[in-house]
């Protein structure tokens, strides 16, 4: 509780981090209140072909799309998809990657070597390529996007936790507690994990941004959730056929992605400065 309070106090002093946090709170609010804020909530699944491709106006704040649906309303509902994908995918990656990293870092056996080599394999090609292949195999849907991102994303946490665990084990007090006969679980969860949790939090916050970008790219390539899902990346892909006339079509979702990812990155930077004394100097 106290640490949380300390964190908040420190964050409040860091203007850019605060701005990032505000953006994220904004995203969450928009997602929660989408049905209230939307002017045409039914347009998530309903079309009005006669009103297609109209520019921004008082009825349609951000114009209409190729099916005559209200882009503003669809944008709000798209926030829900973005949050769901990023939260579950990153959460799963953390749940897989952190234990693997801890164990591999603690036991320096052939098995931990193997675990790390397996994660190397996943890191040997750009994440998006594997994600495309998996998403394509499983078929476009929200669940499959989450699955594809989780499968390809856990090694990042495994690598990080592995390295951090190994350096934490060199700490005198951890060495001491091992010498005193503490069980591996006790060492890992009481001494190592708290010691490295700040790195995990920072990596996870920034990872949210990266995941949102990758998910949007999958949607852009047509591998995201199917239509009429108002996913942002898909909306941008749809708009290409109607450029340059329908300039408003891609603008709103692109800005939305940009702001949300920026929010996570700024917050992550801020957290890093507060939590990780080794890099703190870089921001002075």
């Amino acid at each position: 509780m106290q640490t949380a309070l300390f964190l908040l106090q420190r964050l409040a002093r860091d203007k850019t981090a605060l701005f990032g946090a505000l953006l994220i709170v904004g995203l969450i609010l928009v997602a929660l209140l989408a049905p209230i804020l939307a002017t045409h909530p039914a347009d998530v699944a309903e079309f009005h072909p006669a009103e297609r491709l109209q520019g921004p106006s008082a009825t349609h704040f951000l114009g209409t799309d190729r099916m005559g649906s209200d882009i503003y309303s669809r944008l709000l509902f798209g926030a829900r998809i973005t949050i769901v994908i990023a939260l579950i995918a990153v959460g799963t990656s953390v749940l897989i990657g952190v234990p693997i990293g801890l164990l591999a870092g603690y036991y320096r056996t052939w098995f931990s070597d193997l675990l790390m080599r397996v994660s190397d394999i996943f890191l040997a090609v750009p994440q998006i390529v594997l994600a495309i292949a998996i998403a394509q195999t499983l078929g476009p849907s929200i669940e499959n996007v989450i699955l594809a991102l989780s499968i390809t994303y856990w090694p990042f946490w495994a690598r990080l936790v592995y390295a951090e665990t190994r350096s934490a084990l060199n700490n005198t007090y951890v060495e001491a507690s091992i010498a005193l006969g503490a069980s591996p679980m006790r060492v890992l969860f009481l001494h190592v994990l708290p010691n490295i949790s700040s790195s995990i939090i920072v990596r996870t916050t920034i990872g949210m941004g990266g995941t949102i970008l990758t998910a949007a790219a999958l949607g852009f390539l047509g591998l995201g959730p199917p239509p009429p899902t108002p996913e942002w990346g898909r909306t941008i892909a749809e708009s290409r056929e109607f450029l340059p006339d329908a300039w408003w079509y891609a603008t709103a979702p692109g800005v939305a992605i940009f702001l949300v990812v920026m929010g996570f990155n700024l917050l992550g930077d801020g957290l890093r400065d507060i939590l990780d004394p080794r890099t703190r100097r870089s921001r002075q």
Binding site: A45, F47, P228
Partner: peptide, 15 residues
């Protein structure tokens, strides 16, 4: 995939 018209017709039919 890759044929926007088939996508639009599917969405319209669904509606």
């Amino acid at each position: 995939q890759g044929y926007q018209q088939t996508e639009q017709s599917a969405a319209l039919f669904q509606a």
